[in-house]
């Protein structure tokens, strides 16, 4: 059952990314291009996504388990550390260069040609390298 729900959520996520235009790197880079011809579409997508998701968190707060029986996530972490900031900086740079974040990179894999696979390969290598960088950051005195 959990696998079926996961496949359903993944499919709806992908279809939503497609309908919203967020698989189009031009629209994403257009949103980030505040000094050029700014494209506000991404703000509408984010706003639309926050509506059902806020309702879901409101439901989650009144329950201690998900409908599938598992515990729900605990309270959100509050620690703003160097890994979070440096990670967001690096991710933002990559996002700006190509206009793909992980969700759309996967959703467009089926029709993005060899470039889409190259991006996924590079992204996977970056993901595997992250724990090594994290250990170096944690070793440095604050």
């Amino acid at each position: 059952m959990h696998r079926l729900i996961a496949a359903l959520a993944g499919g709806l996520f992908g279809a939503g990314l497609m309908v919203s235009g967020m698989i189009d790197t031009q629209k994403v880079q257009g949103f980030l291009d505040v000094f050029g011809a700014w494209d506000p579409t991404l703000a509408f997508v984010m706003g639309g996504a926050l509506i059902p998701m806020s309702l879901a968190w409101a439901v989650a707060r009144r329950r201690d388990r998900a409908f599938g029986g598992r515990p729900l996530p605990g309270p959100a972490g509050r620690r703003i550390d160097r890994s979070l900031i440096l990670g967001a900086l690096l991710f933002g740079a990559g996002w700006g260069l190509v206009g793909l974040c992980p969700g759309p990179a996967l959703a467009s894999l089926g029709f993005n040609g060899i470039g889409g696979w190259l991006f996924l390969l590079a992204m996977g290598l970056g993901m595997l390298a992250a724990p090594h960088l994290r250990r170096r950051i944690d070793r440095q005195p604050a």
């Binding site: 996520f13 990314l17 639309g48 996530p73």
Partner: peptide, 16 residues
């Protein structure tokens, strides 16, 4: 599309 993305997240959270 944004609402669809949010619904996907809601299903994943409340279901799994």
């Amino acid at each position: 599309g944004g609402v669809m993305i949010g619904m996907a997240g809601a299903i994943y959270l409340l279901g799994n």
